[in-house]
């Protein structure tokens, strides 16, 4: 059974009175549990919009999104927040850590919202911090960390709450090649070990090569869906 099923998903933005931009057009897509999927395509092809729709950050103009056989495309914002909190992890291009909190507090934040017991929270943070090599960064604030370090904290934040799906929007765009490859290896490792489904957008050919499935978007439509 697919973890994610999109049916004729469309998103149209209206600017002014009559100017319409079709960011996503009639997309049908199925993603299985534990898949490691890259969404690629040129700028403006609809990658970010698609990820935002899947993650419930934006509402589709038409079509449906089924998450774990549950229709989430027409849920209210309050219910969507609940779905995101317990099922979906986000990794953003610009890391987007909460600047006033330490790395540990950033990682802990979602678990706190999930009402995970403090002892379990600490155990999980310790484990993931060792795994990602960020243990000695935990007490630092985001502005004291490099881009690569911040992105690893962001990955830790996304993964530590044990989501079923992680959406990463161009997570390596602000990183150098070395850090990009390290991060991708890390995500692959988590995918294999924790069986977490990953969908990430990128237009970096090196990263695209490493994915098992590559969905190429063009003008808001799926141009190609390549499985290696």
């Amino acid at each position: 059974m697919p973890i994610l099923k999109l049916k004729k998903l469309s998103k149209t933005y209206t600017e002014g009175k009559n100017v319409e931009t079709h960011a996503v057009r009639h997309i049908d897509l199925e993603i299985k549990k534990g898949e490691f999927v890259v969404v690629s395509g040129p700028s403006g092809s609809g990658k970010t919009t698609l990820l935002n729709l899947i993650g419930g950050l934006d509402a589709p103009t038409s079509g449906t999104i089924m998450f774990n056989a549950f229709k989430i495309s027409h849920l209210k914002e309050k219910d969507l927040a609940h779905v995101r909190l317990h099922n979906i992890g986000f990794i953003f291009q610009a890391y987007n850590l909460v600047p006033v909190l330490t790395a540990k507090e950033n990682i802990e934040y979602i678990m706190t919202l999930q009402k995970v017991a403090p002892k379990i929270r600490n155990e999980r943070i310790e484990k993931i911090a060792h795994h990602l090599g960020i243990y000695n960064l935990l007490h630092k604030k985001p502005n004291e960390l490099s881009g690569g370090q911040q992105q690893r904290i962001a990955v830790a934040r996304a993964i530590v709450s044990k989501p079923k799906l992680i959406l990463a929007d161009e997570p390596t765009a602000n990183l150098d090649t070395h850090n990009s490859e390290t991060l991708l290896d890390l995500m692959k490792k988590l995918n294999e070990e924790e069986k977490v489904t990953f969908i990430f957008s990128t237009h970096d050919p090196v990263l695209i090569e490493k994915a098992k499935r590559n969905i190429i978007l063009k003008d808001g439509k799926i141009d190609k869906d390549i499985t290696v």
Binding site: K78, R84, L85, H86, F92, N96, L113, Q114
Partner: peptide, 16 residues
């Protein structure tokens, strides 16, 4: 606003 957007994105309810 952007930071609040991030908080909402990671599952924080609007009431929080």
């Amino acid at each position: 606003v952007k930071e609040y957007g991030i908080l909402l994105a990671v599952g924080t309810s609007f009431s929080i």
